[in-house]
Design a protein around this nucleic acid. Structure first.
Length: 194
DNA sequence: ATGCAGATCGTCT
DNA sequence: GACGATCTGCATC
């Protein structure tokens, strides 16, 4: 049931689309939470001026140069974490940002971590879902193709997929208008309408 | 419904 | 020293 590495070793735009409907699982001593991926964005390395790896190697992006199917996690605005999954051929620094999940199980634990009981607000954003899933710097580089504290298992494809411009990257003059955001069409758990 | 300020720190120039 | 692949609460229309 866990998605194999080959799933992630394909073209990153394909991976970003195919990740929709797959299920993210987080296991901790407190319990297990699950969510279906409903929103992703592709970041295409040196040919994408919105990508963290646009300018090449640095300590922060080092996991992007390793195998596909691993967690690339970074802190943003000094207070939120964002979860990405490495993709493409080995050594190619491309990733898929996980932007929203539809909660499937572990509702109480997610609500406790998020400090809200509103289901629609639990995982509808990259920072929100990391909080709900207790994803932080300690999971940097974790292999998502193996059972453990964080992994991905097969789910159901959405009925249809929409693409749109990526969010919050207007500084990227070259690629800011590229339709590299993917959403499960009409899903209610998006960070914003697709 | 739309808009803006504030929080807060790792990373890179 | 500046700036985010964000979220929240509060203000205004």
């Amino acid at each position: 049931m866990i998605l194999p590495r080959e799933f992630y070793e394909r073209d990153t735009l394909t991976v970003a689309r195919e990740l929709l409907g797959q299920v993210l699982v987080r296991e901790t001593p407190e319990g297990t939470v699950r969510g279906s991926i409903v929103e992703t964005e592709a970041y295409l390395g040196p040919r994408d001026d919105a990508a963290h790896s646009y300018k090449g190697k640095s300590e922060r992006v080092r996991v992007q140069y390793g195998p596909a199917g691993c967690a690339y996690i970074y802190m943003i605005y000094g207070m939120h974490y964002c979860l990405n999954i490495t993709s493409g051929p080995p050594g190619v620094p491309e990733v898929v940002l996980i932007r929203a999940l539809e909660p499937l199980s572990g509702f109480e634990l997610m609500e406790k971590r998020r400090g809200t009981g509103k289901l629609l607000n639990l995982c509808s954003g990259p920072g929100k879902l990391c909080r709900a899933f207790d994803i932080g710097a300690d999971l940097y580089g974790v292999d998502l193709c193996r059972p453990g504290s964080l992994y991905l298992e097969g789910g159901n494809k959405p009925e249809s997929i929409s693409s749109s411009k990526r969010i919050g990257i207007d500084y990227a003059v070259m690629t800011r208008d590229m339709p590299w955001r993917f959403t499960a069409a009409g899903n209610k758990f998006l960070s914003r309408p697709g």
